[in-house]
Simulated assay, not measured.
Amino acid sequence: MSACVIPLSQPMPIADLPPAFRLRVVSAAGAGFPSPAQDWEETAIDLVALLRLDRAASFVFRVSGQSMIDAGIYDDDVVVVDRDATPVSGRIVIAVVDGGFVIRQLVWRDGKPVLEARNARMRYDAVIADESVEVWGVVRASVRNLQG
């Protein structure tokens, strides 16, 4: 197992975060052509509610490594993980492999659950999710700092 192994430490639930995580939304930002009729809008966004971080089963991990870039998850991204979500084929999961957390896609191959990396430019061994592997939670969202 190489790259993207996060040392196993005690994850902490974030349900007890203070309610001060609020941003002001100025307006919708069109991804096409801007509308001259767009009104000035000011609405509060509660990041805890938006990312559903107020649940006891929600956790946050910082990604380390390049193994999931073809899935749109990059080094230093933050992912929101649900412990109570059902891990099904095709979902991105956090698993405990060889004593550390890894982020991988869960897929079924020949009737067996397999954890696969998503980086075509590098080689990562697939891991059969057997009794020695714990699928710890399902990734629900990711956050990226574009200023890098």
Rank of each mutant, 00 (worst) to 15 (best):
M1L: 08
M1H: 06
M1R: 06
S2E: 15
A3P: 01
C4D: 15
C4A: 11
I6A: 02
S9F: 03
S9T: 11
S9K: 07
Q10R: 13
P11R: 03
P13S: 08
I14Y: 10
D16M: 14
D16C: 04
D16G: 13
P19S: 13
P19D: 15
P19F: 11
F21L: 14
L23Y: 11
R24H: 07
V25P: 05
V26S: 09
V26K: 00
S27W: 07
A28W: 14
A29C: 05
A29P: 00
A29R: 09
G30Y: 12
G30F: 14
G32P: 08
G32L: 11
F33S: 12
F33G: 00
F33Y: 07
P34M: 08
P34Y: 08
P36F: 05
Q38L: 09
D39M: 08
W40V: 12
W40M: 08
E41V: 10
E41G: 00
E42K: 03
I45L: 14
I45C: 11
D46C: 12
D46H: 06
V48D: 03
V48F: 01
L50C: 10
L50W: 12
L50F: 15
R52Q: 12
L53M: 14
L53H: 09
D54Y: 09
R55T: 05
R55W: 01
A56E: 12
A56M: 07
F59H: 15
V60D: 02
F61N: 05
R62F: 04
R62D: 03
R62C: 08
S64H: 14
G65Q: 05
S67V: 09
S67M: 09
S67A: 13
S67E: 12
I69R: 06
I69L: 07
D70L: 01
A71T: 00
I73G: 00
Y74G: 01
D75W: 01
D77A: 01
V78Q: 14
V79R: 05
V80S: 09
D82M: 04
R83M: 12
R83T: 08
D84H: 01
T86C: 01
T86Q: 09
V88Q: 07
V88H: 04
S89R: 08
G90S: 02
G90E: 02
G90F: 01
R91T: 01
R91F: 01
V93Q: 01
V96T: 13
F101K: 07
V102E: 13
I103N: 00
R104D: 01
Q105D: 10
Q105G: 08
Q105W: 04
V107P: 09
W108T: 15
G111W: 13
K112D: 00
K112Q: 10
K112M: 04
K112V: 11
V114R: 10
L115K: 02
E116P: 00
R118F: 03
N119K: 02
N119P: 02
A120C: 11
R121Q: 14
M122V: 02
R123E: 14
R123D: 11
Y124T: 04
A126S: 15
V127A: 02
I128F: 06
A129P: 07
S132L: 03
S132F: 10
V133H: 05
E134G: 04
E134D: 13
E134K: 02
G137M: 08
G137Y: 06
V138M: 00
V138I: 00
V138F: 00
V139L: 06
V139G: 00
R140D: 02
R140S: 09
S142E: 06
N145M: 04
G148M: 12
G148V: 06
